[in-house]
Write a protein that binds this DNA or RNA. Structure first.
Lengths: 244, 244
DNA sequence: GTAATAGTGTCTTTAAGACACTATGTA
DNA sequence: TACATAGTGTCTTAAAGACACTATTAC
């Protein structure tokens, strides 16, 4: 069969095709804890539950392009931090309306950038995660509401979130992913705080400093932080071409 | 318009949806090297190029289910070894015919199982990989033909393959993935050979033994291998409930 | 016994944890 | 000077590499 014959015999409407969406797990660190951007649903199904922001993938749009577009639409932020494909969820029953396969992405932004972007929108909220450690295997993760209770997530989004946290923790010490949560200039204490928030443990200071400096990812600037009432720490920056 | 209203008014035939397929990177170890199952294309596009076996995802079929179905259809083998979702490739230009998003899976089977399954089919072939080490970043991987030359892969399958090798190498020492390439009973030398084939390096014997035994994944059986002309090694097995 | 590989003892090297110590800024 | 945190020296511990050594089986 030639390509022409194939296309002749191939009618895209012959079989129903699934819809394909992207969903974003947009995370940051706030008050020493992992936090995630969620959107409360106003309609059925899963009315009043919390959902990951997402959107349909256009017929001529790449998956990464769709993720960037949704990120921009929801937060007003250009790609900036870190954005990577996470996993594709395609259980036929995951959406009660119709067959929707979703390609989940996870994204990281520093808190200040994210907060600024969110002030213009009332339908989005940053909520803290309650992630058990150790023993998480990528399963569901509880999300703590402002009041302290646990939030219900829509669809299979608790599973998506669990997968994201597992991926983030797994990549933490062999990639430069943590720097996406920090400003351009940061102290080693800031960097350690981010690691501790992501892992949910406290780390040994000298060992942490040794490890970070030995990796060769960062360089000191000679400048120091301002506004402390004690000895200011040196400011470091990620070296160029260490972005991933 | 909310997502619900959108879907209410949404006629699935109003906008074209992408097709969704699964493609399998089915790997094994032969002669101390990684090898992959490929299918030579008989038709355009990419006629005579080599492609990963794959198939369309049914409208009511889960992604993992589709991968298992394709694995069974191509090799005649039930799931058996190791099968996990790898990455989803959705570049709009990746297939010149129409928009096809493919969810790539990678699977591992022992060589003997795979060889037996392949004898009934003439359109599939096992070809060795030529994977540079170190420095691979998930990019394209060369595939060595029987004659020694390099094979051309169809579509974006060289990139898919590179991603698979990177994933396999990355999971090697914190998961039991290597055991999917071994029979139920194996020697520590067999296990080391599999690791060396996957990583493309030679490993230190005492250190390897210590590491494997310390992980607690395997147990000795007391039995020994047969048919050697020298001292036979003890046979080990993967402990139950260590399957992942 | 010889050959060949299985399997181990041990020294060195490397990296992490523990923890106390010194250094240096603000007020 | 007092204070609080930055930043380091060093001891211990754990694990990997190197490499030689012993053990065991087929023949």
């Amino acid at each position: 069969m030639t390509e022409f014959e194939f296309l002749q015999s191939y009618d895209p409407r012959e079989f129903p095709h699934p819809s394909v969406t992207v969903d974003l797990v947009l995370m940051t660190v706030r008050d020493g804890k992992l936090a995630i951007l969620l959107q409360q649903r106003g309609d059925h199904p899963f009315k009043d539950h919390w959902a990951l922001p997402g959107g349909f993938v256009g017929i001529d749009e790449g998956l990464d392009d769709a993720a960037v577009r949704v990120l921009l639409a929801k937060t007003g932020m250009p790609a900036g931090g870190w954005l990577e494909q996470l996993y594709t969820f395609g259980n036929p029953a995951r959406d009660p309306r119709t067959r929707i396969i979703t390609v989940a992405y996870f994204a990281l932004l520093p808190l200040d950038v994210l907060s600024r972007a969110l002030q213009a929108r009332g339908d989005l909220e940053l909520v803290e995660l309650e992630v058990p450690w150790p023993g998480e295997r990528g399963g569901a993760v509880a999300v703590k509401s402002a009041g302290g209770g646990s939030l219900d997530l829509a669809f299979d989004h608790a599973e998506v979130l669990g997968t994201a946290v597992k991926r983030l923790r797994g990549k933490l010490d062999y990639s430069t992913i943590a720097f996406a949560l920090l400003p351009e200039l940061f102290t080693l204490r800031d960097l350690q705080a981010v690691h501790e928030a992501i892992l949910g443990v406290t780390l040994n200071k000298p060992a942490f400093r040794r490890r970070m400096l030995d990796k060769g990812w960062i360089e000191g600037t000679g400048a120091r932080e301002l506004g402390t009432s004690y000895r200011p720490a040196e400011l470091y920056r990620l070296k160029h071409n260490q972005g991933d």
